[in-house]
Computed example of a mutant assay.
Amino acid sequence: MTSPTLVAVAHGSRDPRSAATVRALVDVVRSRAPGLDVRPAFLDFDEPGFGEVLAGLDRPAVVVPLLLGSAYHARVDIPAVIEESGAPDVRIADVLGPDPALLDVAAERLAALGLAPGDPGLGLVLAGTGSSHQAANAVVHRLAQRWPRTVAAFATASPGVADAVVELRAGGARRVAVASWFLAPGRLLDRVHEHAGGTPVAEALGAHPAIADVVLARYHAAAALLPAAA
């Protein structure tokens, strides 16, 4: 039986670094699942567009949102494009976050700065995009609680990164750093750097093999629910 296509859909960005990271991640997914039809797609700004990819499907598909939270894009945009396309036998997988493997990758990015959660005197900010959907923000707050002396902050929501840095220093942290809860570099992560005011900021999660494995896990869980897999 032919496996369903994996459509890895990202939001897209005006910053070319973002799409490059998504395509690199898709390449890693392909390398870890030889023979699987894996296609990148973007909701906005970049090509190929999500609707275009759906229109080109010739078999059932699983859409894996390359998103760290279940906010507007996951809950509204992606289902709307699928419905508008009329593509049959398409299943939406869960978003990537809050899989613990992603938090481990965030710790690896911190390690590149010579830092680790729990280091003596170190306060950490786990910085994400932020959403008007408070349940999505709450996930980042819960993840931050897994690390000692760590608070969540957001590029587009409250609390902001600058306020979180001030809070940690006021609480006695001798050093402060920012861990990135962003899949790819781009304008929002650049905003985090700006708001951090010189505080070290770790790189985005990027095209890491552990993230590719989460993509595949999401795919297989959703593919099992397709009628063709019954």
Rank of each mutant, 00 (worst) to 15 (best):
R59F: 01
V95Y: 11
A74V: 10
S180F: 04
A153H: 05
D99C: 02
L143Y: 02
A210L: 13
V9P: 07
G12T: 08
H193K: 10
L110M: 11
V166K: 11
S180G: 10
L43W: 07
V165S: 04
G35W: 11
P88S: 11
S158I: 10
V140D: 03
G172A: 06
A229D: 01
I82K: 05
G186H: 08
D119S: 11
L183M: 13
G160F: 08
L96Q: 07
V81I: 15
Y219V: 03
R17C: 14
R91N: 00
A8Y: 06
L205N: 00
G206Y: 04
H73L: 12
P4E: 01
D27S: 15
V9K: 08
S31D: 15
D15I: 06
E194L: 13
T5H: 09
H73R: 12
L226A: 01
S85I: 11
G69A: 15
L115C: 05
L43R: 09
P65E: 02
A170L: 14
S31I: 06
D46F: 07
R32G: 04
Y72M: 11
V62G: 02
L68M: 13
A80T: 13
A116F: 03
V26W: 02
P100M: 01
A155T: 09
G198P: 00
R218E: 08
H11K: 12
R91Q: 15
D119P: 13
G56A: 12
L226R: 01
D44Y: 03
A41M: 10
L66T: 12
R75P: 03
R149C: 03
P48H: 09
V90Y: 02
L126R: 14
S70A: 15
G172H: 09
A152P: 07
A41C: 12
W181G: 09
A8H: 06
S3D: 15
F154A: 12
Y219D: 02
V105I: 15
H208I: 01
P200H: 08
H141C: 05
G206D: 04
I92H: 01
L124E: 05
Y219C: 03
A223E: 01
E108Q: 15
A153V: 07
A136N: 01
P4Q: 04
V64E: 01
D104Y: 03
R59Q: 10
D15N: 14
R32N: 06
R32F: 02
L103I: 02
H141T: 14
A177Q: 07
A202M: 08
T129E: 09
P227V: 00
A80L: 05
A173M: 00
H208F: 00
E203I: 02
V76F: 12
D119R: 07
E194P: 03
S132C: 03
G121H: 02
L66H: 14
R17H: 13
R191L: 15
L103G: 10
L205Y: 00
V53Y: 11
A223V: 00
A127V: 10
R75N: 09
H195W: 12
G160Q: 14
A153L: 10
L113T: 13
L216E: 04
R109F: 04
S131Y: 11
S132K: 06
L216M: 05
L36E: 14
G118N: 10
V38W: 04
E167I: 03
T21Q: 11
P227H: 00
S158A: 15
A157N: 12
V176E: 00
P159I: 12
D77A: 11
